[in-house]
Design a protein around this nucleic acid. Structure first.
Lengths: 108, 108
DNA sequence: TAATTTTATCGTAAAATTACGATAAACGAT
DNA sequence: ATCGTTTATCGTAATTTTACGATAAAATTA
């Protein structure tokens, strides 16, 4: 598959770069780890554990949600956040595909 | 100044977020794929295949090099770029660690 | 109903990213 | 030495990201 200068980037490249952008901040990685390790999803707990203001954490949660890595479920006045299995599986597949290509290659 | 309290995150979270930032643009993913698939590393070829100006591609190459995912070796007037096995291995490890945590978790 | 708790959104400012033309620097070839 | 080729860097503009206080919105509680 040759790509000329007029072509856009491939859909998989676009999608993986979106996921990467979502992981491109340590706070968002920390959030994913919290959701995975503690299995507790209340927004307030996440805010309490991060060295960031509530508004900032809310923004990070929104980005993770928009890209499909987490879900938010309203639970009374609170919001329960959790990992989005489908999005994570998609990311795993896209990365595995690239990882397989870039692993064990020798050039210079 | 918008202060970044990045020192309050864990080193692994910081490092993985740096790698993610490097992958957070489709052009840089495309570059890694090119280096892996074609095993040809001349900067000019990369410029020719991407829908971006030479200066912009050079900037992307610099970012990939700075984070440790590729290396550049001067070859006469040209530069031969190639994957950096060590950096890629480090990324694989960091991601595998997070992937293991976030996989197969159920919450909401 | 009013007050409280919880979270999202708005407004805004600083910083970083992305992009490109122009130019410099390095090298081989003439 | 000069020329053409190749790549990096500079300068700069537009856009995006990050951050936070203030405030709105939604649900619970008194």
């Amino acid at each position: 598959m040759t790509r000329t200068k007029n072509d856009l980037f491939l859909p998989d490249e676009m999608r993986l770069s979106e996921f990467a952008k979502a992981l491109a901040h340590p706070a968002r990685i920390a959030i994913l780890k919290m959701l995975a390790e503690k299995n507790s999803c209340i927004c307030g707990e996440i805010v309490d554990e991060l060295p960031l203001a509530q508004a900032t954490v809310s923004q990070h949660l929104k980005e993770l949600k928009n890209v499909g890595l987490i879900k938010g479920e309203i639970d009374g006045p609170k919001v329960c956040y959790c990992l989005n299995t489908d999005g994570i599986a998609e990311l795993r597949g896209l990365w595995a595909n690239l990882e397989q290509k870039v692993t064990a290659k020798i050039c210079c």
